[in-house]
Design a protein around this nucleic acid. Structure first.
Lengths: 333, 333
DNA sequence: TTGTAGGCGTTATCAT
DNA sequence: ATGATAACGCCTACAA
C-alpha cells in the first residue's frame, strides 16, 4: 500500500494524497474526504523511511544513559518517554553500561540512526575522547543534558542544584547537633562532585568534623555500604549521622548502623522507591527529576518546532528534601 | 556528504562505494582502501532513511511494556537493549502506562515507525480490541512476548512457569508447618493469574487454609499492602506466612507484620533490588528474567537473519527461588 | 484545486 | 571489478 495505490483508487495524483497526508489546506473538502476514506479503508500507513528521506526526520529522539535498570535512570527514561510520546516523538534508547571509554561509540549509534536530538541523562561517559565526540556532534544535532556538565557550543544543560541541597542537609543535621557526618558516595560524575562539594561546604559552614575518613568512596552496592559502616564502627571511628550520594547506599548504611547499635540519622539521595522500601523509611534529597525531564522534553520540542525560539542554554532547579522516618527535621519529631 | 560525494572524490561510481559500504567482496583491494580512506576522512555516514527505504529496515526493534519506571520492566528493558545493541539492533521504547484500552494505539506507534519486530514485556494491555489489533499486526511483523498469554498465529511466546514456582513456595512453607498463608496480589494479568493459580494449587496440595480472605487483591503500592496487613491483624484474621505477587508488596507487608508483632515468613516475587533493600531481606520467586530476555533477543535475531530457521513458538523456563533472610528453607536456618 | 516531475540517498540488477 | 540505471515511497516546487 503506497501513496500511488491510494492515488489510483481515488483518481487523483499522488501530490493530492500527499497533501491530504500532511494536512495541507490546498485540497477541496470533497477530495480530502474521499482520500481519507480510502486511506482508512486500506489501512494505509505512509512509509516512514521514505518520509524520513524527504523530511530528513523520523521524529525520533535518542535517549542516552548509563543503565535503565538503575531506578534513577529508569524513572528519568519513563518520564521522558511519556512526555515525548504525548507530543508525537519516539524514543530510541541507548544504554552505555559502565564508563569504559566507549561513550563515543554509543553516541555514534544514535547519530547514525539520524535521531533529531539526543537527551543525555547523567554522566554516562567522561573520557576525553568521548566528550570530544559529544562536542563534535553537538554542532550538528541538538544535545540536551540532564544533570551533567558536558559543555558544548550548542548543548542545553538542565541541572538540579544538588550542591546546595546537600549543604542544606548538613545544615539541618548540624542544627540537630550532629557533629560527625559520614558521607558515602560512589562516583565523581558531575552530580557526584556537586554532592560532595555540598557536603564539604556544609561541614565548613558549621565547623563540623572534617576528618577525611568521614568521606568514603565505595562501589554502588549494598554490600560495600554495609561493609564500610561495619568496619568504621568496629574501628571506633565516631560518627553521628550518615549521608549518601544514593538511596541504595543509604539503605545498606542504615541497616548496618542499626545492626551495630547505632540509631542515627541516615539520609539518601534521589528520593527513589528504595527510600520508601527501607526500614525505617529514608529521608532523601529529591533532585526534582520530574521537573528536569519535563524541561528537557520541552526544550527538545521547542527547538524542533521553532528553530529561532529562544531556549535557555542552562536551566537550574533547586533541590528539595523528602522527609521520612530516618530523619525528621521538624521540631515536633 | 552522500554516496555521490564519496564516489566523486574516489573517481568511482556510487555502485562501488555502495559495495564497499556493504562489505561486498567484488571490489578490488586497492579501490576498497581508497574508498574507505575517503569515507573516514570525510566522516561519512550513510543516510539511514535512504538505506531503510531500500532495505525496508532500519534495524530497529520496538519494545513495549507498561512502565519502565517499574523495577521489573526496567530490568527487562535493560537486558533486552544491551543484548540487541550487541547485535547491532536498536530499541524504540514504548510505554503504555495503565491498561486503559489504548494498547492498540501504542502498537500502532511502533508499526508506523516500521520497526522490524516487537517485543512485548508483560501484559501492557488486555482489552478485546487491543488484543485483536495485536493479532492483526502479528501477521505482518514478528511479535515476541515475554510472560504474557497473547495468542497470535505468528507470535512467539516466552514465559516463566511462575505457577509451579508459587506452588513450590507454598509447599516449602507447608513443610515448615505454615497453615494459613496470606497471598497479596495486584493484578490478574497472565503472570498474575499464574501466580494465583500456583498459590491455590499449593493450598490444595497440602490441605491448607483456603479461606477467601487469605487471598487479597490490592493496588500495587506500599500503602495498600501495609494497610491490608494491619487491618487483617486488627480483625484477628489468622495467618502465619505471607506471599505476594510483587516484591514491592512484600516489602510493605513484612514491615506491617513486624510492626504488629508478627515475625512470620514473607516471600516476594521478581527477585528485584527491592527484595535486597528490605529489612530483613526478602526471599523472592525469581522468574528468570535474564533468561527470558536473552531468549527473546535470540528469537528476534534468529527470525531476522534466517527467515526459515526453526524457532520455537513457545518457550518455558522454570522459576527459581532466591532465598534470603525473610525465609530460609534449608534445615540449618 | 490539481497534476507533473525532480529530488531525497541508498540498494540492487543489469550490463560491460 | 566496475558502471549505469531503475527502483524504494514520499515531499514539494512549479505548472496548469
Amino acid at each position: 500500500m503506497t501513496i500511488y495505490d491510494i492515488a489510483k483508487k481515488c483518481n487523483v495524483s499522488i501530490a493530492t494524497v500527499s497533501r491530504v497526508l500532511n494536512g495541507s489546506r490546498r485540497v477541496s473538502p470533497e477530495t480530502r474526504e474521499r482520500v481519507l476514506a480510502v486511506m482508512k479503508e486500506e489501512d494505509y500507513n505512509p512509509n516512514p523511511f521514505a518520509r524520513g528521506l524527504g523530511l530528513d526526520s523520523m521524529k525520533m529522539i535518542g535517549v542516552l544513559c548509563a543503565d535503565v535498570a538503575d531506578t534513577f535512570y529508569a524513572k528519568a527514561v519513563s518520564l521522558i518517554e511519556n512526555d515525548l510520546r504525548q507530543k508525537d516523538w519516539n524514543v530510541v534508547l541507548c544504554c552505555t553500561g559502565s564508563d569504559d571509554g566507549k561513550g563515543a561509540e554509543y553516541l555514534r549509534y544514535l547519530t547514525q540512526k539520524h535521531v533529531d536530538a539526543i537527551i543525555i541523562v547523567g554522566t554516562p561517559f567522561s573520557s576525553r575522547r568521548d566528550v570530544a565526540e559529544l562536542e563534535r556532534i553537538s554542532s550538528d544535532i541538538p544535545i540536551i543534558t540532564i544533570n551533567s556538565d558536558y559543555h558544548s557550543p550548542s548543548a542545553f544543560s538542565i541541572v538540579c542544584d544538588e550542591k546546595e541541597g546537600m549543604r542544606t542537609i548538613v545544615k539541618k543535621l548540624a542544627e540537630k547537633n550532629c557533629s560527625s557526618i559520614l558521607y558515602l558516595y560512589d562516583s565523581l560524575t558531575y552530580s557526584g562532585k556537586q554532592k560532595l562539594a555540598g557536603y564539604r561546604a556544609g561541614i565548613d559552614d558549621f565547623f563540623l568534623d572534617a576528618a577525611p575518613v568521614l568521606a568514603q568512596k565505595i562501589p554502588r552496592t549494598l554490600e560495600a555500604a554495609e561493609n564500610i559502616v561495619r568496619k568504621l564502627i568496629a574501628n571506633d571511628i565516631f560518627f553521628d549521622a550518615i549521608v549518601t550520594s544514593e538511596d541504595l547506599l543509604a539503605v545498606a548504611a542504615q541497616r548496618a548502623a542499626l545492626k551495630n547499635g547505632k540509631a542515627i540519622p541516615v539520609i539518601g539521595c534521589n528520593n527513589s522507591i528504595l527510600a520508601e522500601c527501607s526500614t525505617p523509611t529514608l529521608t532523601s534529597l529529591d533532585n526534582r527529576l520530574g521537573d528536569l525531564c519535563t524541561m528537557a522534553v520541552h526544550t527538545v520540542t521547542q527547538l524542533m518546532s521553532d528553530r529561532s525560539a529562544p531556549v535557555p542554554t542552562k536551566t537550574v532547579f533547586s533541590a528539595q528534601i523528602a522527609e521520612r522516618e530516618s530523619f525528621v527535621f521538624s521540631v515536633n519529631q
